[in-house]
Every structure is written in structure tokens, then in C-alpha cells.
């Protein structure tokens, strides 16, 4: 068990966004969180990351993860269009969570940043401006940054929004590689149900409260799964 959510409830003002959701994720699994717009998918992910306060319930991580060793790929819109930062600076900032009290990056951090950039095919972009890259390239940079922050658990919030189909496919394959080859546990919020079914081991369907959590194979045979697949 790498992550355990127990009775997680989040409310904005008086409106309940996530309602008493409990589930567990095991090491090495690939979980997709699906649901309609406004169903609380992103909020659930943010509550795991402690970006929104819990109204009740708890989020606990397995012993292999301390809180700081999480990787997170936010929705693209969070980052400003004209921010002056090189690709290398962005990727390296992922190493910050293991610096502790030492304020400067070590040689090992820099080597790791380079290694992840090579792995994701952006090694040549080291000195390029982050904001001048295409959407798909930016997502790779942010994925490299997330990998600097973790080798265990990666949380992604709609990573393919706004990408064209070819780039989307490439990104999905990269994420699958990380899952299968490096054994990184993946938890992804997705509105793209057909790809979710293609790649994920488990599906978590939420509409404020938890509607389904289990194997992808059994999800597609449920009424809920069939209906949701047909709609999209």
C-alpha cells in the first residue's frame, strides 16, 4: 500500500466537492480518476497533495514515501505564458524537496535532472526558454521536473489537455513506460475515458462520492462504465 485515503471529504464554502471517499493504491499501480466535469476529480487529487484542506478524513502514504517525495504534474494553465525560465532551471527545481536545509543543489541533483531530461527526449532543450516550447514539450519538461521530485508516486492532473492527438499518444506512452519500466505508481485525473481504459490498471469513478473503484476490466462491464463510455 503506497497511498490510503480514508473518508476524504472536501468542501468549498458549504458546497461539498468530495464526499466521504475511501480507497487504497498499491505500489506500481496505474490508477485513473474519471468522472464528469465538476465531479471533484481534480479536487480529490489536490486533497491528496494537501493543496486543499480536508473537511474530514485522512490521507496517508506508505512507509516508502515521505510527504516530500511526491511528483506532481499540474494542469498547464497554472504556469504563466511569459515566465523567463530555462528548461534546465525548471527541471532542476524538482530536486528542491530533498535539499532540506541545504539551500543549493548538489552535483547529484544536477546529474539527475540531466538524466531525466535525456530520458524524456528534451536533453537538447536544456538552455531553451520554457515558455517558447510547444505544449507537448512543456509537458515533458514538467514531467521531468516531477521525476526529479519522486521515483515512487506520480500524480497527474489532466496532463493531455490542449495537446494534439499525436503528442497526446506520445505522452501517454511515456507515462506508461515510467509505470512499467521504472515501477512508478501513477494516479492520473483524466477526462479522456477511452485512453484511461487503455492504459490504467484501475479506474476510480467519482461524482462527489465514490461510484466505482476497481480493476479496469470489471469497470467496463458495469452499467456505470458502459454508460460513461458511450457518452464520451
Amino acid at each position: 500500500m503506497i497511498l490510503s485515503c480514508h473518508d476524504v471529504t472536501v468542501a468549498y464554502d458549504s458546497k461539498i466537492a468530495v464526499d466521504h471517499v475511501s480507497f487504497e493504491v498499491n505500489e506500481g499501480e496505474y490508477v485513473c480518476i474519471v468522472g464528469e466535469n465538476g465531479s471533484g476529480k481534480s479536487t480529490l487529487l489536490k486533497s491528496i497533495l494537501k493543496l486543499v484542506p480536508l473537511k474530514c478524513g485522512s490521507v496517508t502514504f506508505g512507509p516508502e514515501i515521505q510527504r516530500k517525495r511526491l511528483g506532481y504534474l499540474p494542469q498547464q494553465t497554472n504556469i504563466q505564458k511569459d515566465f523567463p525560465a530555462s528548461v534546465y532551471e525548471v527541471v532542476l527545481s524538482g530536486c528542491l524537496n530533498r535539499r532540506g536545509l541545504n539551500p543549493f543543489y548538489s552535483k547529484a541533483d544536477k546529474e539527475q535532472a540531466m538524466m531525466h531530461m535525456e530520458r524524456l527526449g528534451i536533453g537538447d532543450f536544456k538552455k531553451r526558454s520554457f515558455s517558447a516550447l510547444s505544449g507537448g514539450q512543456q509537458q515533458r519538461v514538467l514531467l521531468a521536473r516531477a521525476l526529479c521530485a519522486t521515483d515512487k508516486l506520480l500524480l497527474l492532473d489532466e496532463p493531455v489537455t490542449g495537446l494534439d492527438p499525436l503528442v497526446t499518444e506520445e505522452l501517454y506512452q511515456l507515462i506508461e513506460q515510467l509505470n512499467k519500466e521504472l515501477g512508478v505508481t501513477i494516479i492520473m485525473v483524466s477526462h479522456d475515458i477511452s485512453s484511461s481504459i487503455q492504459y490504467a490498471d484501475k479506474i476510480l469513478h467519482i461524482n462527489q462520492s465514490l461510484l466505482f473503484y476497481g480493476d479496469t476490466k470489471s469497470y467496463v462491464t458495469t452499467e456505470l462504465g458502459k454508460r460513461f463510455l458511450k457518452c464520451s
Binding site: 497533495l49 516530500k68 506532481y72 499540474p74 497554472n78 515566465f83 525548471v90 527545481s93 524538482g94
Partner: peptide, 9 residues
């Protein structure tokens, strides 16, 4: 650069 990522990690 990215306050949410910094907070989450």
C-alpha cells in the same frame, strides 16, 4: 514559477 508544485512537494 509554480506555487502549487512547490507546495505539493
Amino acid at each position: 514559477f509554480d506555487e502549487n508544485f512547490a507546495k505539493a512537494t
